[in-house]
Simulated scan of single mutants.
Amino acid sequence: MARPSRHVPRDTSRRRTGVYIGIAAFIAVDILLIVLALNSNRAAATAETAAPIHTFGVTSVEPTPTPASKVTPTKTATATPASTATPAAATLLPVPPTRLLGAVDAKTAWRAQTGSCPTAAATPELTTDAGVTWKKTDASGPTKVTALQRLTATSESTVEFVGLAKQDCAPQFVKTFVTGDNYSSYPDKLAGTWYVNPADRATVQSPAGAEKAPCDAVVTLAVRDSKNAAALCADGRVFATTDAATTWSAPVTLSGVLTLTDTDTGYLAAAVGRADCAGVQVLTLKSSLESAVSGCYPTPTPAQSLPGNVAMSGASGTLWLWVGDALGRSSDDGATWK
């Protein structure tokens, strides 16, 4: 007997198909959500790594004097383009000078080159025609002095020096009253003059005696009288004293300054490597060390070769500047030159 065929309702088959379609749609939506989430994370990471990086340069600031009890001014960081960051002058520091200059008036001056003791002979030179010609003299022969450290000219015929004795390199005071035709030593005058012994640059000798310097190494002294002087240190800071080096002012840092000289009202400083002067820039300093730009002496000599090779002196309204092989004179503190 034949088995009757089983009837499957059409509605049941359609239901299964609907279920399968629903499951497939759910899975597709789930996959789409995962993909969107991954893309969102990648975009965030890309945006984070692509964010601009800000660059900050450091520019040197010339602080104004502050009371000794205040904190010494420091360099201040300011946002600047990378191409105009720290000026070249910031890398140039003063060194002990290899030349000395002492002006008498507009036409008369003494100068000398120096170096290490005992090899650097003392051969000062004199000009009486504004530097057109120079008369060479010999101080080492009669006095055995070498390595001159300080020069003070008072007239065409009279000039005095502090140097180092050839025998033991001890400080020595020598002087001429006869236009350099002869020199003599004056040991009794050494204690009453200003100088720095290169063997101990942390000490300043003043008319009051040996005093502690305001820094570890004084490079140059600019002396106004028996009590007033300024000291330039190897780290570029400048200090002033009004009591013969017993106490010192708060420091001022002037970028690129290589040497100092005294004036009737304060001091003058010679600076190199500054962006606004292709040569040696002259700064006027009040006795309180407040500074202002006075002028610029142009020179093709690279700034990097000038530390130790710049000398400056003023007298009777004329500023003399010895830079490399050139000599300039100014009657307006460096604003114009001849």
Score class of each variant (00 low, 15 high):
R237E: 03
K212M: 00
S294L: 07
T263C: 06
F177L: 09
M312Q: 10
L32M: 02
V61C: 02
S185W: 07
E156C: 02
A103S: 08
T299P: 01
M1N: 07
C233R: 14
L283S: 12
G279C: 09
T55S: 11
S60T: 07
P214R: 05
R42C: 03
A271M: 09
Q149P: 01
P171A: 13
S287R: 10
A335P: 01
A210S: 15
E156R: 13
A44P: 00
A244N: 09
A2L: 09
V29D: 00
A250M: 03
P207D: 13
L38M: 11
Y186W: 10
L254K: 03
S60P: 00
I31T: 04
R111T: 15
G102F: 12
A222I: 02
P9Q: 14
T299C: 02
P65D: 10
T12L: 13
K70W: 11
A275Q: 08
T12G: 02
P187F: 07
E48F: 14
V95R: 08
P171V: 14
T301I: 14
W110Q: 01
K135Y: 09
T263H: 06
A28I: 12
P67V: 10
L164H: 03
A28C: 09
T128N: 10
V257P: 00
T114G: 11
I34M: 01
F161C: 01
P96R: 15
A43S: 10
E125A: 11
R15K: 12
C169S: 07
A45E: 12
V104E: 09
K135D: 06
I31S: 05
E48I: 12
T55K: 11
S255Y: 00
S305E: 13
T76V: 04
W337F: 13
Q113I: 05
A153M: 02
T55A: 13
A153W: 04
V35T: 11
V282N: 00
T154Y: 02
V159N: 05
A278C: 09
A250L: 05
V219F: 10
P198W: 13
A120D: 02
I31H: 00
